[in-house]
């Protein structure tokens, strides 16, 4: 399979009458892939299928050549997996180190010394090396999110699935997170679901836009931005015909639309512009 390490073909998943995924074809390579889409687009369902905790109604998934439908191969995928669900709770009465130690055992890191080293490594990676003895209930929301990221990093996973990992992080923490992901050793496959388009632009060489259960774009962030070329303008006044308009930092109106507003200047499109235009084109905004 070469560089193609995760492959999805014709993936569909329904919840009652709701079609969460509808014939998704996707190939994930080593490196970071950003997953963009509005709430309810199917991102979390897609990630949970990749994490082997959700079975699709139809379609095929191959992770490192392993089929998650086979029990033994599913366990093997899980041994290579790091997963951060969208809404993660905490064992409040555990200490930080005890929680990570517990998760490390669940990840079958059974050697005590190796486990201790691994816990120390991930704590250092998220900047919590001094907080190992703290009860989780005493941590702030930001630190809890860092702890959630830390547990996903345990065992040096080859496939790292992060569902909105920067939710709850402040600007500095987000920048640290970008740094952390960029420096992960072993060149793992990382799938990052986020609402933060600037996160995607900053660290993802590849972006996938999911809308209404389908993949509507897969390419580089620059290519996504390029889709909005000729559709983004700035002007002194608001244009009612624009799909979306907002004041930018220069107190000028930024318009995204199909018609150029009067007295406007063409702007350089961003990933966000591309995503918004795509969303509008599919009727999800």
């Amino acid at each position: 399979m070469g560089a193609m390490t995760v492959q999805v073909e014709g993936l569909s998943r329904r919840y009652g009458n709701i079609r969460a995924l509808d014939g998704v074809d996707l190939t994930l390579e080593r490196g970071i892939t950003g997953l963009l889409g509005p709430n309810g687009a199917g991102k979390t369902t897609l990630l949970s299928v990749l994490a082997t905790i959700n079975e699709p109604d139809a379609g095929q998934v191959s992770v490192f050549g392993l089929n998650p439908k086979d029990r033994a191969e599913r366990v093997e995928i899980r041994r290579r997996l790091g997963y951060l669900p969208q809404e993660l709770g905490y064992h409040r009465h555990f200490t930080v180190a005890a929680f990570l130690d517990y998760v490390a055992i669940l990840k079958e890191i059974v050697d005590r010394r190796q486990r201790a080293q691994e816990v120390a490594r991930v704590l250092a990676a998220v900047g919590m090396e001094r907080l190992g003895r703290r009860k989780i209930r005493t941590l702030s929301g930001g630190f809890r999110q860092r702890l959630a990221i830390a547990q996903a990093l345990l065992g040096r996973p080859e496939l790292l699935i992060l569902d909105e990992p920067t939710a709850g992080l402040d600007t500095e923490q987000r920048l640290r997170f970008r740094e952390l992901l960029s420096n992960l050793p072993g060149d793992p496959v990382i799938v990052l679901s986020t609402h933060q388009a600037d996160d995607i632009a900053a660290i993802c060489p590849r972006v996938v836009v999911v809308l209404e259960g389908r993949i509507h774009f897969a390419g580089t962030p620059a290519a996504l931005a390029e889709t909005a070329k000729g559709h983004v303008w700035t002007a002194e006044r608001r244009d009612e015909r624009a799909h979306m308009s907002w004041r930018d930092g220069d107190n000028r109106w930024r318009h995204i639309g199909d018609r150029r507003p009067a007295d406007s200047e063409t702007a350089v499109p961003t990933v966000e512009d591309g995503y918004l235009l795509l969303s509008h084109a599919t009727g999800t905004r």
């Binding site: 949970s48 899980r78 997963y83 669900p85 993660l88 998760v103 669940l106 547990q151």
Partner: peptide, 9 residues
């Protein structure tokens, strides 16, 4: 959900 993603069943 997280626990279900671990190799320990």
């Amino acid at each position: 959900e997280l626990y279900d993603s671990f190799p320990s069943s």
